[in-house]
Write a protein that binds this DNA or RNA. Structure first.
Length: 455
RNA sequence: UGGGGUGUGGCCAAGUGGUUAAGGCAGCGGGUUUUGAUCCCGCCAUCCGUAGGUUCGAAUCCUACCACCCCAGCCA
C-alpha cells in the first residue's frame, strides 16, 4: 500500500516549482468569489485579480500557508491554465489548500494539503505506475493530469485510462453512501456481510475465486451498466458448488419420530462431497428422533409437491425411506410432531428394495445442536437505491434474519475456513465471530429453487 | 443552446467492411439425479439508438438527429 502522504515533501517542492515557473499562483479570493468567477458551463470564467502577481510574491505567500500563518480559506494555490477553457477542470484548478488539521498519516507536519488533482498524477509517477485506472467521472480531469505531468520533472509519465464504474442491483457502491450506511448504523461495519465490500463479501462467505469469476463475467467497458444480482449470485454458486463441504442443517425444525426404530443410533459415514472424495467424510447419526424442515411437510400439499405428506413417503437423505404414520397437531392447528416408519431395506447405498419415492429431503439428528444462522438478503428493497435522495427509506428490513437452526453434529468441529453447502438450502460459512464450539453461520447465497419459483 | 463520454436481445458483453451478429447470466423446453441443487441437451436479436448516405457488401465508413451519463468542491 502506498499513500499520497508519503510524497507530501516532493509534492510541496513541485508546487514551489510550478510557482517559480509561473504555472501556479496563490489566490486570495474567497471560495465564494472563486466560484462566482469560475463562469458557467456556457460562459467563460473571469481571471482572478491575483492571477498575474509576481511569482516571488506567490512563493512567499505559499510558504506562509505552509507555516501556518494564514487561516483556512484565506488563500489557495491555483494552477494557471485557462479561465476560459470549456473544460471546467482547467479553469485554474486548486492545487493546495490550508487545513489546520492533523493528517491521519502525516500527523501534524502539514497544515496545507494537495488536492486530489495535484496528488494523483504525481503520486502515480513517483510510484512508477504506467497505467493509472479510474472511473469515467475523471475523464475530464485527464487533461489536467497530463498538464501537471508535463510541467513537472516527474520520473515517468503514467497514462490515465477510465472505465465505467460497477453498479450492482439492490445495493449502493459509492464509498460515500457505504460510509453513510456504516456511520448511520444501518449495518455493523465495513465488513458487514451485506456490504458490497471485499471484506463484507468474504465474511458473507463469497470465495475469492467466486468474486473473480463474477468479475470475469461482467467484463470492463466504458458503458454505463447495472449488473443484475443474479450474475453475482450465479458466479458465487458456480464456484462454491465445486468447493463447498456438503452438510445438512434445518432452519425451521419440525420434529419427526421414527416409531419402528428398534436399534441403537446408527452412525452413517457420509462423504463431504459426492464428487470430491479427497474432502473426506463425517459421521451422521440416524436414530429414533430427528428433525426436518417444516417446509418439507404439508398436510394439504399443492399439486406437484413431492416431499412428506400424510399417507406419503420420502427418502431422508443418506438414510432411509420413511412412510408417514401420523402426526400431533397443537391447539393452534400447528403440526408439532410427525410420526413415520422407516423401511430397513432402503438404507442409502445398500438399497435393494427397488422402492422409488419422488422426494429426498434433508434432516438432522434429534440431538442436533442449535446454532445461530444469519440469513442475509439484499440490503435494499429497490433495484436502484442510489437514485433515492434518502436511501435509508428503501432499506430492506429483512436484509438480516437471524434464525436458530439445527446443524448436524460434525459442524460443531472447527472448520473456520471451510465453505459449506447446507443441502437444499444454500451456501454458508462460519462467521469470524464464532468462538470455540459455538459456531455462527452466515448464508452467502441460497441455492436455486425451481420449486419455489413455480409456486 | 460549452466540453467530455456512452448507445448490440431482460442484464452483462464480443465484434472496428465480407458466410446464417460470439459467449456468459437470466428465461423457456427436455434428460440425468438419494440435494425440486449440480450436470447434460435444445430454444432464445432477419438485427446492432433513429433516419438517411457511401459500397457489390456495413453493427462496423460518412452525415444528421435522438436518448442517457459526467463536469461550474479550497471532495475524491
Amino acid at each position: 500500500m502506498h499513500h499520497a502522504a508519503d510524497y507530501f515533501d516532493q509534492l510541496f517542492e513541485w508546487a514551489l516549482q510550478l510557482i517559480r515557473q509561473g504555472d501556479a499562483y496563490v489566490d486570495e479570493q474567497s471560495a465564494e468569489e472563486m466560484r462566482a468567477n469560475r463562469g458557467t458551463l456556457t460562459e467563460p470564467g473571469i481571471p482572478s485579480p491575483y492571477r498575474d502577481r509576481d511569482p516571488k510574491e506567490s512563493e512567499a505567500l505559499f510558504l506562509k500557508m505552509r507555516d501556518g500563518k494564514l487561516a483556512e480559506g484565506a488563500a489557495v494555490l491555483r494552477a494557471k491554465i485557462a479561465m476560459d477553457s470549456p473544460n471546467m477542470n482547467l479553469r485554474d484548478p486548486a492545487l493546495y489548500r490550508i487545513r489546520h488539521v492533523p493528517h491521519p498519516r502525516a500527523g501534524t507536519k502539514w497544515c496545507i494539503y494537495p488536492t486530489y488533482d495535484f496528488a494523483h498524477g504525481q503520486s502515480d509517477a513517483i510510484e512508477g505506475i504506467t497505467h493509472s485506472l479510474c472511473t469515467l467521472e475523471f475523464e475530464d480531469h485527464r487533461p489536467l493530469y497530463e498538464w501537471l505531468l508535463k510541467k513537472l520533472p516527474v520520473p515517468n509519465r503514467p497514462k490515465q485510462t477510465e472505465f465505467s464504474r460497477l453498479e450492482l442491483e439492490g445495493t449502493v457502491t459509492s464509498k460515500r453512501k457505504l460510509n453513510a450506511l456504516v456511520s448511520e448504523g444501518h449495518v455493523d461495519g465495513w465488513d458487514d456481510p451485506r456490504m458490497p465490500t471485499i471484506a463484507g463479501m468474504r465474511r458473507r462467505g463469497y470465495s475469492p475465486e467466486g468474486i473473480r469469476l463474477f468479475c470475469e463475467r461482467i467484463g470492463v467497458t466504458r458503458k454505463p451498466n447495472t449488473i443484475e444480482l443474479q450474475i453475482l449470485e450465479g458466479a458465487i454458486r458456480d464456484d462454491l458448488e465445486g468447493r463447498a463441504h456438503k452438510a445438512m442443517a434445518v432452519l425451521d425444525p419440525l420434529k419427526v419420530v421414527v416409531t419402528n426404530w428398534d436399534q441403537p443410533v446408527l452412525d452413517l459415514d457420509v462423504a463431504w462431497h459426492p464428487k470430491r472424495p479427497e474432502l473426506g467424510s463425517r459421521t451422521l447419526p440416524f436414530g429414533p428422533e430427528l428433525w426436518i424442515d417444516r417446509s418439507d411437510f404439508e398436510v394439504n400439499p399443492p399439486e406437484g409437491f413431492f416431499r412428506l405428506t400424510p399417507g406419503g413417503a420420502v427418502r431422508l437423505k443418506y438414510g432411509f425411506i420413511v412412510d408417514f404414520e401420523g402426526m400431533d397437531v397443537g391447539p393452534d392447528g400447528r403440526v408439532e410432531t410427525v410420526y413415520v416408519r422407516y423401511d430397513p431395506a432402503t438404507r442409502s447405498g445398500q438399497d435393494q428394495s427397488g422402492r422409488k419415492v419422488k422426494g429426498t429431503i434433508h434432516w438432522v439428528p434429534g440431538t442436533a445442536p442449535r446454532v445461530p444462522i444469519n440469513l442475509y438478503d439484499r440490503l435494499f428493497t429497490v433495484p436502484d437505491p442510489g437514485q433515492y435522495e434518502d436511501f435509508s427509506s428503501v432499506l430492506n428490513p429483512a436484509s438480516l434474519v437471524v434464525c436458530q437452526g439445527l446443524v448436524e453434529p460434525a459442524l460443531l468441529n472447527a472448520m473456520p475456513e471451510a465453505y459449506f453447502q447446507f443441502e437444499r438450502v444454500g451456501f454458508f460459512k462460519q462467521d469470524p465471530a464464532t468462538v470455540d464450539g459455538q459456531p455462527i453461520f452466515n448464508r452467502a447465497v441460497t441455492l436455486k429453487d425451481a420449486w419455489a419459483k413455480k409456486q
